[in-house]
């Protein structure tokens, strides 16, 4: 039930942000709070159709890409090969931390090197496929493409530093 715990935690933190901002808005007494509600609602209305597709796509990703296969694929990889494979494996994990961390943990226990594991976590965090539907829906194709090109080398660098230093 870790997933539920995380959701509740996220809810509490986010609500706190909202409350702080909202109370400042209300104190202004210039209609800021109403404007903010309208603006947030308008933004949501704009992206809702895309967001619906994003959730379907996200569910399909999880159905089509077997997490077990990723685990087998990595086995006990280490070294430079492990870093590259780790990055690709991380990228192809289709879900949130409650999906990725257990897989990564299993790969780690199976004897994968620290470089592989670090590349795996970073690859999932920075390049993970699961975030793409939401990014495309809200930020558009241009931003998403540029962001992916910019981020792509970092998981490999992370794995390589961990491999060389440790």
């Amino acid at each position: 039930m870790r997933e539920v715990g995380i959701m509740i935690e996220a809810m509490v933190v986010l609500s706190l942000f909202a409350l702080i901002l909202l109370s400042i808005a209300v104190k202004r007494k210039d209609g800021s709070s109403k404007k903010a509600l309208r603006s947030g609602f308008g933004m949501m209305k704009g992206v809702i159709p895309l967001l619906l597709f994003a959730f379907i796509l996200s569910g399909m990703l999880q159905a089509a890409i077997p997490a077990e296969l990723i685990k087998q694929w990595l086995g006990s990889e280490a070294g430079l090969r492990g870093i590259i494979i780790g990055t690709l494996a991380g990228t192809s994990i289709p879900g949130g931390p409650y999906i990725s961390f257990p897989i990564i943990s299993a790969v780690h226990d199976a004897g994968a090197g620290i470089g592989t594991v670090v590349a795996f976590v970073t690859g999932w965090a920075m390049m993970g496929l699961g975030k793409l539907p939401f990014e495309l829906a809200i930020m558009g194709t241009r931003f998403t493409l540029v962001r992916m090109l910019l981020f792509a080398v970092f998981p490999v660098i992370a794995g390589w530093i961990a491999y060389v230093v440790l």
């Binding site: 809810m11 609500s15 947030g40 933004m43 949501m44 967001l51």
Partner: peptide, 20 residues
């Protein structure tokens, strides 16, 4: 369904940021 409450607050925060 699970993230709908989070989604609503997220857009509220987004709206507040834009206005505030």
């Amino acid at each position: 369904l699970k993230v709908t409450p989070l989604l609503l607050i997220a857009f509220l925060v987004a709206g507040l940021i834009q206005v505030m």
